[in-house]
Computed example of a mutant assay.
Amino acid sequence: MKIRFWGTRGSIPVSLTTQDIRQKLLSTLQAANGRTFADEAEMARFIAGLGFEVSGTFGGHTSCVQLIPEGPEHVILDLGSGVRALGQHMLARHGPGQPQTYHVFLSHLHWDHIMGLPFFTPAYLPGNRIVVHSGHAKARAALRRQQDEPSFPVDFDYFGADFEFVVHTPGVAQTVAGMTVDVMRQRHSGDSYGWRFVDPTSRVIYSTDSEHHVDDLTERQAFVDFFRGADAVIFDAMYSLAEAVSVKADWGHSSNIAGVEMCLEARAKRLFLYHHEPVHSDSQIVQILQESRRYEEIMREGQPLEVHAAWDGLEVTL
C-alpha cells in the first residue's frame, strides 16, 4: 500500500507569505555565500542539504490523504482543501471518459475536513461513483448544506457522479476496496472517528481531530490497542504537550508527545505528525519533529519508531 498526503494542515488553509519566501531565500544565499557551482546538479545537491524548512514547505492545505491499495478503486481520507489537487491529479491520470470509484472516509464533519468537495472535479463527472463512509448519520446533510445558497453558488444536485453514503459502527468491521476497515470514536466536539485499514501487507491508522487526556488510562489503552502493530499511524499532533494539557485543553486535538508514547506502546513502525497548527511556520514544525525524534529515542524500549512530519505531496510506500 502507498500513502500520499494532499493536505496536512489543521483548522484552516494557510499559505506562505512574501516574508516567508524572502526568509527562505535569505537563508539560502547566506549558506551559499562565496560558493560557486559547476552545474544544476551541484546546485540541487546543495539545496537538498539546506534542511526542509529552507528547501521545502509542509504546505497549507487542510486534511486530505490518499491510500493507494491494490485494485482499481480509490481511497480518500477526508475532503479538506487538499482534495482539489487530488482531483486534478486523478483527472489527468484517468481522463473524463473512464469512470472511477472513490471511497471517501470522513473523520468528522467540521468544515476544514469537507470544504474541498465543491472543488473536487471527479464529483462533477457522470459515471463516477463516490461512496462516503462516516461514523456520522448526518454526513449527507452536512455535505449538501455547505453548497446551499447563499454559502455556495453550485447546488449539491449539480454533481454528476453517483453518491452513496455508508454509516460505520465502532466494533463492526467492513470490507472496502479489498481492505478490512474498522472505526473508533474519538474525543472531539461533535465526535470524530479514527479509521484502521488493513490489507494483506499493510496496516494504516488515520486518527486526526482526537484529544487524549493523560489521566484517562482506559481510553488510552483502547487507542494503543487500535494502533497495535500499525505500519503507519497518521496522528493529530497539532499542539505541544504543554498546550494540550493547559491553555488548549478541551479544544479537541492532541500533541506530538502523546503520539510518540502511544505508538511506542503499540509497537507501531511509523508515526506521521499531522494536522499541523496553522500558525506554525516550517521552521517550527521542523523543531517539533526534532523534539519528537529525541523523545522517541529517550522513551524507546524495543524496536525504533520512525517519526515523520507529514507534508503536502509526501508519498510513502509501506
Rank of each mutant, 00 (worst) to 15 (best):
M1V: 10
I3F: 02
R4C: 09
F5D: 03
W6S: 04
T8W: 04
G10Q: 01
G10M: 05
P13Q: 11
V14K: 12
S15I: 06
L16S: 08
D20I: 10
L26N: 15
T28S: 12
L29S: 13
A31L: 13
A32W: 11
A44E: 14
R45T: 11
F46L: 01
F46E: 04
F46M: 06
G51P: 06
V54W: 01
G59F: 10
S63C: 13
Q66V: 06
G71T: 01
P72F: 08
I76F: 10
L77A: 05
D78C: 08
L79S: 09
G80N: 08
S81L: 10
G82V: 07
V83A: 09
R84K: 15
A85K: 13
L86M: 08
G87H: 01
G87N: 09
M90A: 02
A92Q: 13
R93D: 08
R93P: 02
R93I: 00
Q98M: 05
Q98D: 11
H103L: 09
S107W: 02
D112R: 04
I114V: 14
G116V: 05
L117M: 14
F120L: 06
T121L: 13
P126H: 12
N128Q: 06
I130K: 12
H133M: 04
S134M: 06
S134L: 06
G135A: 04
K138Q: 10
K138D: 10
R140F: 07
L143Q: 03
D148R: 14
D148N: 05
D148W: 10
S151M: 09
F152M: 07
P153Y: 11
V154G: 01
D155A: 14
D157M: 03
Y158W: 05
F159Y: 15
A161N: 01
F163W: 15
H168Y: 06
T169N: 01
V172P: 05
T180E: 11
V181T: 03
D182R: 03
M184L: 13
M184S: 03
R185Y: 00
Q186G: 04
D191E: 13
S192R: 08
R196E: 07
V198A: 11
D199H: 01
T201G: 07
V204T: 08
S207A: 15
S207Y: 00
D209L: 06
D209V: 13
S210C: 10
E211F: 10
D216A: 08
L217N: 05
L217G: 00
R220K: 13
V224M: 05
G229I: 05
A232K: 03
A237Y: 09
S240G: 15
A244Y: 02
S246E: 06
D250F: 08
W251T: 06
G252N: 07
S255D: 07
G259D: 02
V260I: 11
V260L: 03
M262L: 14
C263Q: 07
L264H: 00
E265M: 14
R267M: 10
A268R: 11
K269Q: 10
Y274D: 04
Y274I: 04
S281H: 00
S283M: 09
Q284H: 08
Q290M: 06
R293P: 01
R294P: 00
E296Y: 02
E296L: 00
E297C: 01
M299H: 14
E301R: 14
E301A: 07
G302E: 09
P304S: 08
V307N: 02
H308V: 00
A309H: 08
G313Y: 04
G313H: 05
T317Y: 00
